[in-house]
């Protein structure tokens, strides 16, 4: 899976989960402040990433994933590892 594949799929999941428009869902967007996610929505989003990419994201690492780009980078690194 290339970085651009991961990016596309992450954006698709974020759009679906948080119900945001494609043009609003860019890599620099912060889930909470920019995309309206509350703490429960973040949990749901993380679980969706886990299921889709077949990885596990420990709770203590979730706080480092603040933007769409953070998620892409995290998932890319985990999939390589």
């Amino acid at each position: 899976m290339t970085t651009s594949d991961i990016e596309k799929q992450v954006i698709e999941i974020v759009r679906e989960q948080l119900d945001v428009k494609p043009e609003d869902c860019t890599l620099d967007k912060i889930f909470t402040d920019d995309l309206g996610a509350d703490s429960l929505a973040i949990v749901e989003l993380v679980l969706a990433f886990e299921e889709h990419f077949e990885i596990k994201i420990p709770d203590e690492e979730v706080e480092n994933i603040k933007t769409v780009g953070d998620a892409v980078n995290y998932i890319r690194a985990r999939r390589k590892a």
């Binding site: 429960l40 929505a41 949990v43 749901e44 679980l47 886990e50 299921e51």
Partner: peptide
């Protein structure tokens, strides 16, 4: 439990 229960289940 991790993937079977939504964080929105209770509310």
């Amino acid at each position: 439990p991790r993937h079977g229960i939504s964080p929105y289940f209770v509310p």
